[in-house]
Simulated scan of single mutants.
Amino acid sequence: MMRAVDHLVMPFNTLPEACDWFERIGFVVAPEAAHPFGTGNACVFFADGRYLEPLSIVDPAAYDAAKAEGHLFVERDADVRNLADRPAISGLAFSSSDALADREQLLEEEAGEDGLVEFGRTMRLPDGGAAELSFRLAFAAIHAADAPSFFCCEARHSVRPDRSALTTHPNGATGVTGVTLTAPDPQVFRDYLSAVCGSPAENNPDGSLTFALECGRLDIVPRDVGSFAIESVTITVADLAFARKFWQGQGIACAEESDGVAVDCPNGRGRIRFIEERS
């Protein structure tokens, strides 16, 4: 079954640091929220239902306790934070309607972990209200401490918070359309990523592989130097020329690309790419 991106995890040292940067480049950032295992986030939500999750440690004691207990999410986050050369985007979560079934599928294809993560938290809303949320996560196997963490995220709550006030961004961003990974030899990860994405690989003339996703794509491209990592996330904007002027006004450095522009992330190796939304 072809999967859809739910969100991407981006480790930061502190949430205020993350919020300041995302607001500078033109995003509305949701109020901070804490997980019961010591991490917290301040998410950037999009109109297409996907989001970015800036993540930091907000309760070191709870974090250390969860790590000691073998909590998969915390273990992987800690491995990334201990790296001298940290990736800006450490994890990719796919939407799930049944994380238990997703775990079984991944295990059957020799690409899964036995462990699950289940938790609940309170989400503060822009109007001052709150919503109780609960989640179940099923994880793909991980190749190394510096490799991306892939997991399926099942939202188990019935409430659907109104996030419309959080999805109108000053830079005109509308959604997530692609994720690009790198590896010295993409073919090594062909079967693994096919199981993770729920779709077959398409070979490209440059040696890269493309995996179709629901409303998007995942690419893995060859790099002579570097490891298996998430290089960038591609975000659509309503008007690229407008977005460029916004970033110029904020003094944000942008790199021109064939189909858009890219902004380097401040929290490690990685970029956010922006392309114009196609009708």
Rank of each mutant, 00 (worst) to 15 (best):
V58Y: 08
G26R: 01
V44F: 07
L55C: 11
H35T: 05
G70L: 09
V29R: 00
Y51N: 02
N41H: 08
G38E: 08
A62L: 12
Y63S: 10
V5M: 13
G49D: 04
A47K: 15
F46D: 09
A62T: 11
E53M: 07
E32G: 14
F27P: 00
E17W: 00
F73P: 01
A47F: 07
V58K: 01
V28G: 03
F45S: 14
H7Y: 11
A66V: 12
A34F: 06
P36F: 12
C19M: 15
L72A: 15
A34N: 13
L52W: 06
T39W: 04
F37N: 12
R3S: 10
G70K: 01
G49R: 08
D6E: 14
D48M: 02
A42Y: 03
F73G: 01
V29K: 01
M10A: 13
F73V: 13
G49K: 07
F37Y: 13
L72K: 14
A42E: 07
L52T: 03
A34I: 04
M1P: 10
G49W: 03
Y63H: 14
F12Q: 03
I57Y: 06
H35A: 03
V29A: 04
D59K: 08
A62M: 06
Y51K: 03
H35N: 00
T39S: 11
G49T: 00
A4Q: 14
F46L: 11
D20T: 15
T14R: 11
F12T: 12
F27L: 02
K67F: 15
R3E: 03
M1C: 10
A30L: 09
G40W: 05
G38Y: 03
V28L: 04
I25L: 00
E32M: 14
D59L: 08
E17Q: 13
L55W: 05
T14A: 10
M10R: 10
F46Q: 02
D20L: 14
G70W: 03
R50T: 15
M2K: 15
D48K: 05
A61I: 12
E23C: 05
F45P: 02
V58E: 08
R24Q: 13
A61W: 10
A42F: 02
E32C: 12
A34T: 12
P36L: 09
S56W: 01
N41E: 04
V29W: 05
A18L: 04
L8H: 10
P54A: 06
A61H: 13
F45C: 13
H7I: 03
L8Q: 10
T14K: 04
L8K: 08
T14G: 08
A4S: 15
V58F: 07
V29H: 02
L52C: 09
L55F: 10
K67C: 15
V28K: 13
D48L: 09
C19W: 07
F27E: 00
A61N: 13
P16R: 06
L52V: 06
A33V: 13
P16D: 09
D20F: 10
A34Q: 13
E17Y: 00
I57P: 01
F22C: 07
F37C: 09
F22R: 03
M2D: 10
K67S: 15
E17T: 03
W21D: 00
L55T: 15
G40S: 07
G38T: 07
V5W: 05
D6H: 12
G26E: 01
E53W: 01
